[in-house]
Simulated scan of single mutants.
Amino acid sequence: MKYRYIYYLSGVIMGGIMLWAIFKPGTASWVAFACWLPFQIGEFWYGRRLQRFNQRQATVIWALADQLGFTAGDLKRLAGKYGELDWQNTHPENMQFYPSQKVMVSVIRQLKQERNLREMELKQHGNVIE
């Protein structure tokens, strides 16, 4: 997500302001609070947005996996990362774990390729039989 780096940079700046407020009491504490409040609102907004994105990605993964008849073990094999229990915990009914965004995008790409390959094989076999 493109806002991640801006968000991290704002955290570093906020940390600097908080240190300044600690060593310069008085009006500095009000300045720190004025900077802290928007930062917390941004953190909340970014966290919710990231969670919704992860939920959508996990739902897409499991929709494709169910369509292909894949299990958590098959997803583990495709991703090459995380355990089978981790992948079971990404299931939409039991979302307790989210793999990294790179892994989810990679698994979705691989599942779509597998689905397209199966569709092409079905079309070829359908034409040969007819």
Rank of each mutant, 00 (worst) to 15 (best):
K2G: 07
K2R: 13
Y3Q: 03
Y3K: 07
R4N: 06
I6S: 09
G11A: 08
G11N: 12
I13S: 10
L19V: 13
W20C: 04
A21Q: 13
I22P: 02
F23W: 14
P25F: 03
P25S: 02
T27F: 07
T27G: 10
A28Q: 03
F33A: 12
C35Y: 09
W36D: 05
E43K: 13
F44V: 13
G47L: 12
N54L: 07
N54G: 08
N54C: 03
Q55S: 06
A58P: 01
T59K: 13
V60N: 08
W62S: 00
A65F: 02
L68P: 01
L68I: 01
F70V: 00
T71L: 09
T71N: 08
A72C: 04
D74I: 04
K76A: 09
R77D: 10
L78E: 01
G80I: 00
G80Q: 00
G80E: 00
Y82I: 04
G83A: 00
G83K: 06
E84Y: 03
N89C: 05
N89G: 04
H91N: 02
P92F: 05
N94E: 07
N94V: 11
M95T: 06
Y98P: 02
P99E: 00
P99V: 04
K102N: 10
V103L: 04
V103W: 01
V105T: 10
S106I: 00
I108T: 01
R109M: 08
Q113Y: 09
R115E: 05
N116Q: 13
N116M: 12
E119Y: 11
L122Q: 15
L122A: 15
G126R: 15
G126C: 15
N127I: 14
V128D: 13
V128W: 15
I129H: 12
